[in-house]
């Protein structure tokens, strides 16, 4: 087992994952990586570390599984993680190594994907249902 959390955090994530209503697959996409900025870690194998973190999450629940692919279609850059409820690609991507605060948002994505019903408010769901075009939302983040 790969430990990526402190014991108390791991226990908390285990508890949260125990409440998943349906299985969630985490697809790790590997491929050619860009050169990170000076100041960012230069000797980190981001792809390997991403896979390690994702496997660490999957270790915490039987309902969370990992699949690894090399340069799958519909990924713009690597490494990347797709959160897939019941193995379905619903357009969720994390590009880069999910760490620090952003690991929390990946866990949040797994929890939401594991819900049968959205946790968004009914009025939000109505507004989204009325959408008549594609919406690509990109959020630039840093792990600290």
């Amino acid at each position: 087992m790969v430990a990526i959390f402190r014991p108390e955090d791991e226990e908390r994530v285990r508890e949260l994952f125990a409440a998943l209503e349906r299985p969630v697959e985490l697809l790790v996409a590997h491929g050619p990586e860009e050169t990170p900025l000076p100041g960012a870690a230069q000797d980190v194998d981001f792809g390997a570390q991403t896979e390690r973190v994702v496997r660490g999450l999957a270790d915490l629940s039987e309902r969370v599984t990992v699949r690894v692919e090399e340069k799958p279609p519909s990924f713009d850059r690597y490494p990347a993680v797709s959160v897939q409820p019941e193995g379905r690609d619903v357009g969720i991507r994390y590009y880069g190594l999910p760490w620090g605060y952003e690991l929390g948002s990946l866990i949040g994505a797994v929890l939401e994907a594991g819900r049968v019903e959205s946790s968004l408010r009914p009025e939000s769901l109505e507004r989204l249902a009325a959408l008549d075009r594609e919406l690509a939302i990109d959020v630039f983040v840093t792990p600290t």
Binding site: G39, P85, I92, G96, G108, S124, L131, P143
Partner: peptide, 22 residues
Amino acid sequence: AYKAALASPRVRAAAIESTEFP
């Protein structure tokens, strides 16, 4: 953004780690 992507087939949501994709 992730919740919206889950709730609608028309929405995609991506987090992009800025220091890795400068």
